[in-house]
């Protein structure tokens, strides 16, 4: 039974990363209509930003949670202003190819300078150790990752679904020309939205650094699963991405316990089934 709970916890932690990353992808796809294949590389940059902040600047994990998303978010906004904005109105394929190319370049540069092996990033002192819950031992840092990710995901959902700014974002997703004719600077809003999506990826990278080590290809390993999560949840659906992210993490964890051979493929099997039954995803709407 202990092993089952342990796998459930692993599933929830993976689900946290899936949710944060797929949420960023959903935000970017909803607003920019771009399938951001660079998302994994930007997640990796978040982890590296935390690593450099600590080892070069002596800046702690707690500040890195704030600063790394801002730094990588600014990098993302520069990408949007200098490259992605020129893809407006073009087929999705162009965005996918461009961001895939950006991912390869970014990962290649980091691999060139830092090799392929992982760099260690210590768990902050306040989150070391664990708690005995009676039915399982819970490492505090892992519990923190799950709770913090959930709070950030729900905060992002609230921002987009329940605030005036979110209404601008949703409206601009439908008809950017008219929203701009109402006096809203839509190009600036698109840039900031891309920055927000990229910032969420970087935040996931910081959270991941103490668990998974900091590696140039850490995002490449994850991004394919995250895309499957987004497809299952429904492209562009905010709540769909959050729920599907956590749910698929848990399903993956349970599969590891009950039938480990399928644990790496269960997400893709689900993706195929969902595409066959509901091609727009579980919570997505038809275009």
């Amino acid at each position: 039974m202990q092993a089952l709970y342990a796998q459930l916890l692993v599933g929830l932690i993976n689900g946290s990363f899936y949710a944060l990353l797929s949420l960023g992808l959903a935000v970017i796809f909803g607003m920019l209509n771009i399938i951001n294949f660079a998302h994994g590389a930007l997640y990796m940059m978040g982890a590296f930003a935390a690593y450099f902040l600590l080892n070069v600047g002596g800046i702690s994990y707690w500040w890195a949670l704030l600063l790394a998303p801002i730094i990588v978010g600014i990098f993302g906004m520069i990408l949007e202003r200098t490259m992605l904005k020129f893809l407006t109105g073009l087929d999705h394929l162009y965005g996918l190819l461009l961001t895939f190319g950006i991912a390869l370049i970014v990962q290649g540069v980091f691999q060139n300078y830092f090799g392929s092996s992982g760099l260690p990033y210590a768990i902050p002192d306040q989150l070391k150790g664990g708690m005995n819950l009676g039915f399982m031992f819970l490492p505090i840092y892992r519990g923190w990752v799950v709770v913090f990710s959930l709070v950030v995901c729900l905060g992002t959902w609230f921002l987009i679904e329940k605030t005036r700014l979110g209404a601008y974002l949703r409206a601009a997703t439908e008809n950017p020309t008219l929203v701009r004719a109402f006096g809203i600077n839509v190009p600036r809003m698109i840039t900031l939205t891309y920055g927000l999506g990229v910032g969420l990826a970087a935040l996931a990278g910081v959270l991941s650094a103490p668990i998974n080590q900091v590696r140039p290809l850490m995002g490449a390993d994850l991004i394919i699963v995250v895309f499957a999560v987004v497809v299952i949840g429904g492209m562009g659906s905010i709540m769909g991405s959050i729920i599907t992210g956590f749910a698929l993490g848990v399903i993956e964890g349970l599969t590891k316990y009950f039938y480990p051979e399928a644990s790496n493929t269960v997400v893709f099997v689900l993706m195929v089934l969902v595409l066959l039954v509901k091609p727009t995803g579980l919570t997505g709407r038809a275009a």
Partner: peptide
């Protein structure tokens, strides 16, 4: 640009009405 024009005090109601379904 249209956002600046709107901020100068011109408002436009389009023929297709432009009601947002997600709002």
């Amino acid at each position: 640009t249209s956002d600046k024009i709107a901020r100068m005090g011109i408002a436009f109601c389009p023929e297709e009405r432009g009601i947002f379904s997600s709002l």
